[in-house]
Design a protein around this nucleic acid. Structure first.
Lengths: 195, 195
DNA sequence: CGGTAAATTGATCTCCATCAAAGATAGTGG
DNA sequence: CCACTATCTTTGATGGAGATCAATTTACCG
């Protein structure tokens, strides 16, 4: 569990390609994939001086700990689904806007400023996380700067127009019926699923 | 928990866009996102007649059940990270090949044929899951057919050259050091992280 | 058999990756 | 203290993979 600092996790393919699957900050728990296999799919790297709290494998039998780990994992599942949606159906500008808003949100929750912060990761790492090239990320930062959405100086970011950023995104994953829910219902009516 | 049948889960954005985040079959557990919030990010739909086993919320306090749910969720986290890698850094042909191999693998584990099966979902649903348009999926099926990798007749699929398919993929997520692990180590040497 | 949803195939376009080169920054060693 | 070097960033030019638009064709179900 992260006490302080900032981390990235990376999943690799055999051929050398890899992808950043997440950025993590204080309070989050690392390495919950492969809790059963004892084998982790991701490498985790600290992006600044950091402190962690190690949870011994033996303590995993503690029911209280298990209950909270369950909750943490379920939240992470929901988060990952949001990222899948981002990677699968958003355009580049939406991806970066979503990313920045999410970052801002998490920093606020930890008592930092909502609109001014220091990026711990490189453009390449952001790009990897968002499924974009580092050049595209850089160009987007420049464009957002020009459009008055952000003030960008290297890794120092200042959000100038948070509503403008929100307008770029499809807002965020929402709970409720999906677009084709109506079709699906017709379908299950015609072929009723014995659930 | 799925007793029999086939499901998809879908995450939606407010603006109407949505994305299939997974296909699920017998033995898998649904709805583990939002285990804490009581609020699920995804809608789940049966794609054929199916049977499920409902787990009452009250039983979530049972430590034995919690232990197994933890394991199930950790596996799902690893799976989702694989999908993120697929969405973020694979080309269309790799995505479809990976998808088919994964499907085959899971069917074998349930006692079905490894190389012959019936797709329960439409091209559009496959495309949504893989971050591709339905036309691209259709074209890929046609190409794979021409190249002798598959025998495609609508939703009936027959894998003719499984090694050929494997060759198209970056094989699969692998455990170990990521490509830039060496750089990262230099970096942590120069700025040692107090972990 | 009609009517509807799904699949196929073609033509065109666009967003973003890639290639390339020049600046900026920070850490290193003389 | 400053030049040196490696890494990171920015910006431009070009090309291509896949989206989109459009038109049939095929399968499916009442």
């Amino acid at each position: 569990m992260i006490r302080s600092g900032f981390f990235k996790s990376v999943v690799a393919l055999e051929d050398g390609r890899d992808q950043v699957t997440g950025f993590h900050m204080a309070g989050e728990v690392l390495g919950m994939d492969g809790l059963d296999t004892e084998c982790h799919a991701a490498d985790v790297t600290a992006l600044e001086d950091s402190e962690v709290c190690i949870i011994p494998r033996a303590r995993l039998n503690d029911p209280a700990l298990q209950r909270s780990l369950c909750k943490v994992m379920s939240r992470e599942l929901a988060r990952d689904h949001g990222v899948m949606l981002l990677l699968g159906s958003m355009r580049s500008e939406e991806r970066l806007a979503t990313f920045l808003l999410n970052l801002s949100h998490r920093l606020v929750a930890r008592g930092f400023s909502a609109h001014e912060f220091h990026l711990r990761m490189t453009r390449e790492e952001i790009g990897s996380y968002l499924g974009l090239s580092l050049e595209t990320v850089s160009r987007l930062f420049s464009r957002f700067h020009l459009e008055g959405l952000l003030c960008v100086a290297q890794k120092h970011i200042c959000i100038r127009d948070i509503d403008g950023l929100r307008a770029l995104t499809g807002i965020c994953p929402v709970i409720g019926l999906s677009r084709d829910a109506r079709n699906v219902r017709q379908r299950t009516e015609s072929r009723p699923a014995a659930v």
